[in-house]
Design a protein around this nucleic acid. Structure first.
Length: 143
RNA sequence: CCAGAGGGCCAGGUGGCCGCUCUGCCCACGGGUUAAUCCCUGGGGGCAGGGAGGAAAGUCCGGGCUCCACGGAAACACGGUGCCGGCUAACGGCCGGCGAGGGCGACCUCAGGGAAAGUGCCACAGAAAACAGACCGCCCGCCGCGGGUAACCGCAGCAGGUAAGGGUGAAACGGUGCGGUAAGAGCGCACCGCGUUUGCUGGCAACAGCAGCGGCACGGAAAACCCCACCGGGAGCAAGACCGAAUAGGAGUGUUGCGCCUGGGGCAACCCAGGCAGGCCCGUUUCCGGGCUAGGCACUCGGGUUGGUCGCGCGAGGCGUCCAGCAAUGGGCGUCCCAGAGGAAUGGCCAUCGCCCUGCGCAAGCAGGGUACAGAACCCGGCUUAUCGGCCCUCUGGCGUA
RNA sequence: CGGGGAGUAGCUCAGCCUGGUAGAGCACCACGUUCGGGACGUGGGGGCCGGAGGUUCGAAUCCUCUCUCCCCGA
């Protein structure tokens, strides 16, 4: 496990054991780092990029097990459409990532035009499938 | 009832599960510090409360706020606005009025100063396109030729008169009628139109009405240059302020090099202070004025970038009511505190009820589809553009009934 | 978010300031040249000037609104 030590998680802490904290990518440089040196997988509703965390380069949002950033280009539509695509992806990622995604990785979800109209269940399976193809999915049943 | 005009308002509701962000309070914990507490800081949990718009949009104007330039002055230049009056912090905005155009009407539209300050333009066509001018034509006179008994007719030329007719054009120097004439012509007259730096009346004014005057002179275009009047310093919250890594650039010291003059110091190289000259900058010019201005090498100290904090929401504020005003708007009183994110929250999924359209059905209803435009990014006042539909008020025209 | 710039032929650009005829190069087509192709020569076609209004007799050009694209300020 290359995840940074979870500062608040010690014996006697009321946080349930196994809770994963998802940090956020905050700056353009962090997104570019994932895009430049990471792997990517495309699904109808989403494009996923990922990169193993380099401990020498700290995140702005420091205390977390894995980091997530969501983005949308102007091709998706106007500001309302981009916001909706980001919100749907964030909601789906909130459900999927702690259960499936490996720790110690950066993840970037990129919205597409289909993200707006794709059914919610399909969006979730899109993310899971992409993570599996990238080889960063947990073995599932072990958790 | 149908068709239409003007103005205002709304921007789906309810419920369930799971979430986001800010503020306040509480709880346990980690890190720093300490002997310990306190304190600082970090990510969590719980409870309560707040959480997108009429356009948040385009960024087309006007302000607040911040920094820079702010010492003026004059002229120039540049940009903008343009009937009159009012409102406003200000505006290119709004309100009221005037004029012009459109509509049966309610109403709508208008960058709506100046073309007798100047420069330039008006292609093609046409004789001529802007101090007018004359192609065809019409008319008088003279001369020549031909015909005719003659009156006179025809043709060609010369010198004049004319702007009625022809045709061109987007536009041709008023229109109609009568008189007049060799033919004509505002040449004269009547009416209409036009102009008016004339007077009177009304109006703060734009302007309107009446009278007079002018025979009519003044083509269009200033969204061509321009003139006149008025307004305008530049940049923008990525402004700006503060805290502050790693790596490359600045200040001090030493050394080397470097225009002139004066004074001081030093044995000297040289250093310090002042002035002058040169160069650059303050939009341009002028006058004064101000600022900056010397490289290379070695050694010591302060800034900026990444990042963080502030700016950052009590405001030309919202709601209600009264008063002044035709209105825009202003004033008084009461009451309320109402988003603050930062790859950027204000949501995701589901159920159900509304609303609209289409089809089926006698009906109850059923099925299908639709439910817009669009997301705060320092704030405010406007303008413009996008928008499924619904509601309310006032008014106009037509038809019908009483 | 703020500041600036550009839309004209299939492509790259002139023309706009100073309004009346849209032009150049490459590309395309035909013919010639060649045994054939390329190159070369001659000739030709092709643009409602991003869209909508307005000013004007007349707009690619002037004015207003709008759409799209590009650049700059982390």
């Amino acid at each position: 496990m290359t995840a940074l030590p979870h500062a608040g998680r010690t014996a006697g802490n009321p946080i349930p054991v196994g809770t994963i904290r998802v940090g956020r990518l905050r700056k353009r440089a962090e997104f570019l780092r994932v895009a430049a040196s990471g792997k990517k997988a495309a699904a109808p509703g989403v494009i996923v990029q990922t990169r193993r965390v380099d401990a020498a380069v700290p995140h702005l949002d420091a205390v977390a097990d894995l980091w997530l950033g969501i983005t949308c280009s102007r091709k998706v539509g106007n500001a309302v459409k981009r916001n909706r695509a980001r919100r749907r992806l964030r909601e789906a990622a909130r459900v999927v990532l702690p259960r499936v995604a490996a720790s110690g990785q950066d993840y970037v979800l990129i919205g597409r035009v289909e993200t707006l109209t794709r059914p919610y269940a399909a969006l979730i399976s899109d993310i899971e499938g992409a993570l599996r193809r990238l080889g960063v999915a947990q073995t599932g049943e072990s958790r």
